[in-house]
Design a protein around this nucleic acid. Structure first.
Length: 479
RNA sequence: GGCGGCAUAGCCAAGUGGCCUAAGGCGACUGAUUGCAAAUCAGUUAUCCCCCGGUUCAAAUCCGGGUGCCGCCUCCA
């Protein structure tokens, strides 16, 4: 099986080979930091983490970059008010936009850490790369694919007619865009689909002095082109983002970057389908824009959310509901309990059929991941291992040492990709408390005070601790 | 108006021409085990893949037509 990814550009799955053997250059569109990230954002960001881990499993050296957009960007509507997302949030909260972006960036980083996403090589911020953006704008002007407009020529636009492949990624045709009623006619633009590279507005709070004037700020798309080029070079192997970014954002990135460098910007484009919540689009008015704290407040750990978001195929619809969270948690617990039994199994002779089951599970796991990151199929292979081994090794589980180690090893490999099996650790205080409750329960049981014993178990369950009694004594673990 | 995606058991979700009398998970139910549980084991839980028509020796899978849901075209992952 070869590693295959669906490429948005060609609209078909393709065998993946990086431009430079053994090394993958990968860029992800990260968050716009004006509001706390929610479960929907995490689907896209955790997909990036999954992709990295799968590439690493396949032996590639991965150079991973995920940007942070800490500049607001105009919408057409906002433009009339001279206010962008970041500045609107600023007006609503009374905070300085710089402060908002700083705070949200910190939240984003800590949320990602709680979700066990590996840190990318760089998390560049747009505001730290204004010179790189300006330089690219200069290049585009020099090549004649961009033009100056407005008073004093302080606004710079990219001319879509100067780039024939404009529309190739998204399937939009320039003529269709022209005819579309949804593009407001901006008299400064030569073509309605032309997009801003740099704009000027003295009223803006976040603004920079440049060769184009005193009070400028970058267009939305130029940041990614500039930062991707700085850290990864002219050509990226993979660029990812949410499906909403295909147009206009990624379409415009291609145009700018390729017009500027004359090289292919991205070899494989991968886009994650939007997460649904309660069957529809999440919205603030429905109150279903959940943050990681909302998830934790409902008694889940971040890793439960991580698994929910990762185990469905990234290009298939996924519906976030609290039932689905419970489901994900239950599924993790099945694996955890299996691993627990394997680690405490009775070492005996080799159980028949187990070696075959392990080999089959590993093959199924890899085949799933290789097939455009089909995590549903990959996890199914691991669950089949659980069923097979349980059926063959008996209860209590009897395995040879080599078999027990091979199973642990495979589950470790699974967890190197999914990273969901280790519970949040208990603090020393909590651990001591749990241990004394377990001991107290044992003595209650010894004197046949089952009412007290059950009461203690209930307390432990609330602390997400499972106690199991057996002939060999009691054991407990964190769910 | 333009572009795209999806419809599989109570719920989540693989499978895209024969190995499907349809993976896997959650949940539920019956029996075993247990002080009771938990976990585990044995078994049950879609005769069928939104509907209609067609192609084919063969379709959940291909084609045509419906219906429903979702997304993009405007800030959004």
């Amino acid at each position: 099986m070869t590693l295959t990814f669906y490429n948005t550009l060609t609209r078909r799955p393709e065998p993946f080979t990086p431009a430079e053997p053994g090394k993958v250059r990968m860029y992800h569109c990260g968050p716009t930091v004006y509001r706390r990230p929610h479960v929907g954002n995490f689907r896209a960001f955790l997909f990036a983490d999954l992709l990295r881990r799968v590439l690493e499993r396949r032996g590639f050296e991965v150079q991973q970059v995920m940007n942070v957009t800490d500049v607001g960007h105009f919408t057409q509507e906002d433009e009339d008010r001279g206010e962008d997302r970041m500045e609107m949030e600023s007006r609503l909260t009374g905070k300085d936009p710089w402060q908002i972006s700083r705070e949200i960036t910190e939240l984003f980083e800590s949320d990602m850490a709680r979700l066990r996403a590996k840190k990318p090589m760089v998390r560049p911020r747009a505001t730290d790369h204004i010179p790189e953006m300006l330089q690219m704008v200069d290049t585009l002007l020099a090549k004649g694919v961009a033009y100056r407009a407005g008073a004093g020529g302080q606004n710079i636009y990219f001319s879509v007619n100067a780039f024939d492949r404009y529309g190739e990624l998204s399937g939009n045709r320039v003529e269709a865009l022209e005819a579309g009623a949804r593009i407001e006619v901006n008299p400064e633009k030569k073509h309605p689909a032309d997009f801003a590279l740099w704009k000027s507005d003295p009223k803006h709070i976040m603004k920079w002095k440049s060769q184009f004037g005193e009070h400028g700020f970058p267009g939305w798309h130029i940041e990614c082109s500039a930062m991707a080029r700085k850290y990864l070079g002219d050509t990226l192997d993979i660029h990812t983002g949410g499906e909403d970014l295909v147009f206009p954002h990624h379409e415009c990135e291609v145009a700018q970057s390729e017009a500027a460098t004359g090289r292919t910007f991205v070899r494989t484009w991968m886009h994650v389908q939007f997460l649904k919540v309660d069957g529809g689009k999440m919205s603030k008015s429905l109150g279903n824009v959940y943050s990681i704290d909302d998830v934790v407040a409902r008694g889940f750990e971040p890793r439960h959310l991580r698994f929910l978001l990762l185990r469905a195929h990234y290009r298939a619809p996924l519906n976030f509901t609290w039932d689905a969270m419970t489901d994900a948690k239950g599924a993790i617990d099945r694996l955890a309990s299996f691993l627990w039994d394997v680690k405490s199994c009775v070492i005996k002779g080799a159980a028949p059929g187990v070696d075959e089951a392990i080999a089959k599970a590993r093959a199924g796991f890899d085949a799933g991941l290789d097939d455009d990151l089909n995590t549903a199929a990959a996890t199914a292979a691991i669950f089949e291992l659980v069923t097979d081994v349980r059926a063959k090794a008996g209860a209590p589980m009897k395995l040879s040492r080599a078999q027990a180690e091979a199973i642990s090893q495979l589950l470790d490999e699974f967890d190197a990709v999914f990273d969901i099996l280790t519970p949040e650790p208990l603090s020393d205080v909590e651990r001591t408390e749990v241990e004394s409750l377990v001991a107290e329960r044992q003595s209650a049981r010894a004197r046949a005070d089952y009412a007290r014993a059950d009461e203690i178990r209930k307390i432990l369950t609330e602390k997400r601790v499972i106690v199991e009694d057996s002939k060999d004594g009691v054991r407990w673990r964190r769910m």
